[in-house]
Amino acid sequence: MTLHRGRGFASINYPIGMNLGGDPSQALVHSNPDGKFMVALSSIDLGQGMKSVTRQIAAETLGIPVEDVYVDTADSDTGPHCMGSFASRGTHRVGNAVIAAAREARSVMMEAAAQELEVNPDDLVTDGKGNIHVKGAPSKSITTAAACGAAQFKQGRTVSGRGIFLVPLSDVDPDTGEMTPVTCFAHAAMVVDIDVDDETGEVTVIEMNSAYEVGRALNPRLVEQQLIGGAWMGMSHALWETTEPYYPDRIHGPVDFNEYLMPGPGDIAPHHISVLERPAPDGPFGGKGPGEMCANPVLPAVANAVFNAVGVRIDELPITPEKVLRGIAAIGGPQPQPKW
């Protein structure tokens, strides 16, 4: 038995949002009388952090602390329409809708504050800590709580806002495929190091190094969670997972997690990530959406590393020990390739 070390590379870009557009999302924002805000959405938090990222976006736009905002999702009676959580559209589409709604609510809050302070609303700024003051004159100020209270109890204004974000639907030319697929792309590059056991055909991922460009990282912790989890999924797609192991034959289809193969904790490889942030011009504060694309470079990088290790091209996923052994046999033994 010999272990053969190999390394593979892949780079990708990823379209953000539903292809061709035409996928609106809406948001409603309103304030309680004490300046605490609610954001109402029908968007779904899959665990990716929809509630959290829209909460930060709302707080940033309103100019108030994040603790002063809560996001309610996924009740069709109260949340306005959203296409859903897929196609890496949540941050981009819903984030922009929340910005629009929060801006409208903020403008009412600022007008109310201006009336209380007897100044022009254009001269007012928020400090992000719960205060509104005259630009350059911090002492002439009112709390956001007092402004919202005055709006509702004295001035008869609703401190609320509506927002929608829609990328207009693109046509597709049937003959050339000319179209506007999306408005921005995320990017990634990945190097994977593996060992291939030429007796068992097993591939072990030793280390992953990556660079992901995600637009602005709106919440670096959420970005990190997405990238780490997503890359593991990519590794799993490359080496383990399928519902039809002998596709297109339907035999041996797994029916539970004993038969459906995925990496266990011992198979997880160290992953060193660098995040680059090139803000998308039309993204919410430049955000794109790291959710889907983080898995994609891992699949080809692993396949390329297998070739580098033993000289076998596995062009059908997943790269099972059976395929590796058959591949090695077909070329008359492992043929390690030059190392980079």
Binding site: S52, A59, G128, L218, R221
Partner: peptide, 15 residues
């Protein structure tokens, strides 16, 4: 980028 925003870019714990 403007990296000096109040809430954006912060590692806020999820709601």
């Amino acid at each position: 980028r403007d990296d000096n925003l109040n809430e954006i870019g912060k590692p806020t714990q999820r709601q």
